[in-house]
Amino acid sequence: MHWNIKEIDAPELAQWYENKAEGFRIIDVREMNEISGGTVPGADPMPMATVPVRLNELEKDRELVVVCRSGARSAQVCMYLQQQGFDRVYNLRGGMIAWASSGQQVALPRAV
């Protein structure tokens, strides 16, 4: 079965912040030691290995943007979430590398 992963780039995600307010959620799937160096503002830390056991924390009726370092791990998580019935899932193209290099704000992570 082929999964079509929706992607969002850093400038578009920055626009979402301005236009959608609380209408979406960002999940950072990197390891905690990576996340501690900075993440997308408002992102919730959920390391990739914990996603299957934390599915109940995610809302199927809400847009979810998944973030990692380069976009590879988050793409895998997006595929997994689609397999679990989530259809409003977006991969941040280029991950934190693209987010930071496009001049977007990097914030300290929220407490777990």
Score class of each variant (00 low, 15 high):
residue 88 R to C: 00
residue 42 G to T: 05
residue 37 G to A: 10
residue 43 A to C: 06
residue 89 V to G: 08
residue 84 Q to C: 14
residue 66 V to S: 05
residue 110 R to Y: 00
residue 91 N to E: 04
residue 68 C to R: 13
residue 54 R to S: 04
residue 88 R to W: 01
residue 65 V to Q: 04
residue 79 M to G: 10
residue 57 E to A: 10
residue 109 P to C: 02
residue 105 Q to G: 00
residue 107 A to C: 01
residue 61 D to H: 11
residue 29 V to H: 14
residue 43 A to P: 05
residue 101 S to Y: 04
residue 53 V to W: 01
residue 46 M to P: 10
residue 30 R to N: 01
residue 32 M to A: 08
residue 66 V to P: 01
residue 33 N to T: 13
residue 63 E to W: 04
residue 66 V to Y: 02
residue 2 H to S: 04
residue 88 R to Q: 09
residue 22 E to Y: 08
residue 83 Q to E: 15
residue 31 E to F: 11
residue 58 L to I: 04
residue 90 Y to G: 01
residue 22 E to S: 12
residue 95 G to Y: 11
residue 95 G to D: 07
residue 70 S to A: 14
residue 51 V to W: 11
residue 30 R to C: 02
residue 62 R to V: 13
residue 78 C to P: 01
residue 69 R to P: 01
residue 7 E to V: 01
residue 104 Q to N: 12
residue 59 E to C: 05
residue 96 M to F: 10
residue 76 Q to A: 06
residue 106 V to W: 03
residue 59 E to I: 15
residue 85 G to W: 13
residue 52 P to Y: 08
residue 47 P to F: 09
residue 2 H to P: 09
residue 30 R to W: 09
residue 17 Y to W: 11
residue 95 G to C: 03
residue 20 K to A: 09
residue 48 M to C: 06
residue 57 E to V: 03
residue 81 L to N: 10
residue 21 A to N: 11
residue 3 W to G: 04
residue 88 R to H: 07
residue 77 V to E: 00
residue 83 Q to F: 11
residue 3 W to V: 09
residue 39 T to L: 08
residue 9 D to W: 12
residue 69 R to W: 13
residue 8 I to D: 09
residue 61 D to V: 03
residue 105 Q to I: 15
residue 67 V to S: 00
residue 5 I to S: 08
residue 52 P to E: 04
residue 24 F to Y: 15
residue 35 I to F: 00
residue 78 C to S: 11
residue 8 I to Q: 09
residue 42 G to K: 11
residue 62 R to N: 01
residue 89 V to S: 08
residue 56 N to A: 14
residue 12 E to Q: 12
residue 21 A to H: 14
residue 93 R to Q: 08
residue 35 I to T: 13
residue 97 I to M: 12
residue 1 M to I: 05
residue 21 A to M: 15
residue 48 M to R: 15
residue 11 P to D: 02
residue 39 T to I: 05
residue 27 I to Q: 03
residue 78 C to A: 13
residue 69 R to M: 06
residue 106 V to E: 01
residue 106 V to S: 06
residue 3 W to Q: 11
residue 65 V to I: 09
residue 14 A to R: 15
residue 46 M to T: 13
residue 86 F to C: 14
residue 98 A to S: 10
residue 84 Q to E: 14
residue 104 Q to W: 13
residue 44 D to T: 13
residue 67 V to M: 00
residue 25 R to F: 05
residue 74 S to M: 02
residue 74 S to P: 02
residue 22 E to G: 12
residue 52 P to I: 03
residue 26 I to W: 08
residue 11 P to T: 03
residue 15 Q to I: 05
residue 49 A to T: 15
residue 21 A to V: 10
residue 30 R to P: 01
residue 77 V to F: 01
residue 103 G to Q: 02
